[in-house]
């Protein structure tokens, strides 16, 4: 499954990355690594550059300086053609879902496979399969404007995972949702993580989501999420905290909860 990863190195590697827009720098000298199979949770206040960082990973933006490696390949120097190839191994869920509003749910979810000119029958089958995964089979013929926020998010997740990506990027999958819908979305993320074992980068502003991810696992047989035994914490879940475009924390769940940094403590409160 991971044959696209060229060497046994990290899945994502940022080395001294800086990017600026008209109003000044958004990310300043950001360096971090995400290992294969890791779930990396990206925290930080609004406007701290989380979405920009995620777009850099997928090559949707280019850094002004520094190097970005994904799958061991230098994304920051790829041309658009190579990027399109790289992106076929990456699934991305956008902040506001970004569904194509002129296409039905079926065409939205099957978009990538249609671009790859797969057999229509196989596309239909795989669309049904992922819609079943996100529990939205009934909505297959609907259009995005007829869906609720939570449903749009689930369609967006279905669209991201249909290509069986090795790397998943979730930009605020629970943003703007009520608490109950948020938990079902996070449960879906846990399920996807434990079924596919894909590496994943997830932005959230709800700390609660982050800790749910770190302390729960998906029980496939019982088909529900459950806490890990003995209050264990998933070792594969790590955190990255951004503030004002700088990395102020990079480490495991325990390190985060035991941090002595006053700003971090204030943020976690």
């Amino acid at each position: 499954m991971t044959e696209f990863l060229s060497v046994g190195g990290p899945m994502i590697e940022f080395d001294d990355v800086t990017i600026s827009f008209d109003r000044g720098p958004v990310l300043k000298n950001v360096s971090f690594q995400v290992a294969l199979g890791e779930t990396r949770i990206l925290l930080g206040p609004t406007g701290s550059g989380k979405s920009v960082l995620m777009k850099l990973v997928n090559g949707l933006l280019k850094p002004d300086s520094g190097q970005i490696r994904v799958f061991g390949r230098l994304v920051s120097e790829m041309d658009e053609r190579d990027l399109l190839v790289m992106r076929s191994h990456v699934g991305m869920v956008f902040q506001e879902s970004a569904l194509f509003d002129s296409l039905s749910v079926e065409d939205n979810v099957g978009y990538r496979l249609e671009e790859e000119h797969l057999d229509p029958r196989e596309i239909r089958e795989r669309v049904l399969e992922v819609l079943r995964f996100v529990d939205l089979e009934d909505a297959i013929d609907k259009f995005p404007d007829k869906l609720s926020g939570g449903m749009r998010r689930r369609v967006s997740i279905a669209r991201a995972i249909i290509g069986r990506p090795e790397l998943l990027l979730y930009d605020s999958p629970t943003g703007g949702l009520d608490p109950i819908t948020s938990s079902t979305i996070i449960e879906l993320v846990v399920k996807q993580r434990d079924v596919s074992h894909a590496t994943c980068l997830l932005i959230t502003h709800r700390l609660q989501d982050a800790f749910t991810l770190a302390t729960n696992r998906y029980n496939l047989r019982a088909n529900h999420m459950e806490p890990m035994p003995n209050h264990e914490v998933d070792a594969g879940t790590k955190f990255l905290v951004l503030q004002d475009g700088r990395v102020i924390f990079d480490g495991s769940t325990l390190e985060l909860t035991h941090s002595s940094d006053p700003w971090l403590l204030g943020y976690i409160e």
């Binding site: 777009k55 997928n58 949707l60 658009e80 990027l83 399109l84 992106r87 076929s88 990456v90 991305m92 956008f94 902040q95 506001e96 970004a98 569904l99 194509f100 509003d101 978009y111 990538r112 671009e115 790859e116 669209r159």
Partner: peptide
């Protein structure tokens, strides 16, 4: 409107120029 709702980025992320 596709640009401001990130549909263009989504399109690129799904492998279309």
């Amino acid at each position: 409107s596709m640009k401001v709702t990130e549909q263009l980025d989504a399109m690129r992320a799904l492998g279309t120029d």
